[in-house]
Amino acid sequence: MISQNYTNTSGSNSSPGSQHLSEAHSKSLSRFLPPLPLFALSPLLSHVVNFIAKKHPELFSRLGESTKKTFLINPTNLPFFLILQPDPNNPRLKAYNRGSEIKHDVYISGSFATLLKMIDSQSDSDALFFNREIMVTGDSEAMVALRNALDDMEGTLVDDVASSLGPFSKPVRKFFDIVNKSKRHHE
């Protein structure tokens, strides 16, 4: 079992588990993104992960031992990647610039819309894997546990995130809407 590894997320496409960050794809979605520096994203991501952890405590019992793992989530058409540590006492979700080397147990990549649809159970993750729309390397046990834990979540992540943001819920929903449409356009 690969328990700890590093993955190249710079888009230079040179190590196992790395992915090529296509310019066209990157631009297609970045167009809709405000030019947020990552330090501004941090409190938002932290708020989101804490909100979800509080609302869905059952997630952690499904995750079991995998609460101790570190997940690198690479939305291939965004200019950054995410690190998730689903520790029930201190859940963390942070964004990093491409090229940063972060120790992780699980690596998962796909377009932002594909990952979102998978997390929200709009698409079947096995089918996405069969079609090669998502890629997973590292600790498969932790990945399967995370997939099943998220799949057991009532409602959708988009609704959770939007409803947690009070007055910003409308623009956030709109953003996710655009993401979904942009994905359909590229399919």
Binding site: I2, N13, G17, T137, G138, S140, M143, A145
Partner: peptide, 12 residues
């Protein structure tokens, strides 16, 4: 195929 025995590797 217990998940902790399964590994995927994608080359360049």
């Amino acid at each position: 195929s217990p998940a902790n025995f399964v590994h995927y590797e994608e080359d360049k």
